[in-house]
């Protein structure tokens, strides 16, 4: 095929970045669905254990929290915990895997823009977070009744949270040099912050000082905003939650795009 013909045909294909974006998303979704035993089953089992132990067994002795029975109170936080860990893990491990196997070079030598690469990976992370979030939500219905208070808040907070933690996972993947590097943040940062982020308790229970400290934890805003969407109660203002989530997402996006533009972790 001559050069002139190729250029004509390339134009006929439409926006090449859109095709590239669809390709990355399809590849990402195929990846986490192909290894569903590693990606879908563990959160389902873990969350079921949380529902049984914290909700049914311990929760009966705790009684009510925030005006709801304890099981209903912790379900929104546990769903968000799944969304956070799965969006983060999907992007960090997938991007690092592509670096480690060097097949990230397939994208780097192609005409795809950096933003398309980033959006493709983030969409993959959001897709997995939503899949797992739905699975955990369905499982929770075996243990409690969920009446959605504000569907817009539920959808928007889920998507915003998944986008933010996918971006953070991407940044982790860029800097990671070993497989250990993609598990350090989830283990030593995300999990503790999630436990301290009001999944299992209201910050009203904390002494003033620690309640103030807790407000530095971004996961607190995620959990409470989502809990507002499901139950209609929150320890913090919804406006603050959106403001912080959107601000962090914008900052994380700018950092991720800059890292890609500079070739951090992928170009020498």
């Amino acid at each position: 095929m001559s050069l002139a013909n190729y250029e004509e045909k390339a134009t006929d294909f439409g926006n090449p970045n859109w095709v590239a974006y669809q390709t990355i998303v399809r590849t990402e979704v195929r990846r986490f669905t192909r290894i569903w035993v590693q990606t879908m089953i563990p959160p389902a089992i873990t969350m079921t254990l949380y529902f049984i132990i914290f909700g049914s067994l311990i929760g009966r002795r705790i009684g009510e929290m925030g005006g709801f029975d304890y099981m209903a109170y912790i379900v929104p936080g546990l769903i968000m915990m799944s969304v956070i860990t799965n969006s983060y893990a999907n992007v960090s491990s997938s991007f690092f895997g592509a670096k480690f196997g060097k097949f990230i070079e397939e994208m780097l030598v192609s005409p795809i823009s950096n933003q398309t690469i980033l959006l493709g990976y983030v969409t993959g992370g959001v897709a997995r977070a939503v899949f797992v979030g739905i699975i955990v939500t369905i499982l929770s219905l075996f243990f409690t009744h969920l009446a959605i208070h504000n569907i817009l808040a539920v959808v928007s907070i889920t998507l915003l949270t998944a986008v933010l933690f996918s971006l953070l996972g991407f940044i982790n993947g860029v800097y990671a040099k070993r497989f250990d590097d993609v598990s350090i943040v989830p283990t030593f940062v995300l999990t503790p912050l999630t436990y301290l982020g009001g999944v299992f308790f209201s910050i009203d229970l904390l002494p003033d000082f620690w309640a103030g400290v807790a407000q530095l934890n971004p996961i607190l805003y995620v959990v409470n905003a989502f809990r507002f969407g499901i139950l209609g109660v929150s320890d913090i203002s919804l406006g603050w939650a959106y403001g912080i989530l959107i601000s962090m997402t914008v900052v994380a996006y700018v950092i991720a795009v800059r890292l890609l533009a500079n070739g951090a972790g992928v170009r020498s």
Binding site: T23, G101, F103, P111
Partner: peptide, 21 residues
């Protein structure tokens, strides 16, 4: 430098996709 877990044909489909095809 290709994904060792991917099918041979899919590697080419993906590369074509990255080039907007």
């Amino acid at each position: 430098n290709f994904n060792q877990f991917e099918k041979t044909q899919n590697i080419l489909i993906n590369t074509a996709g990255y080039h907007g095809i």
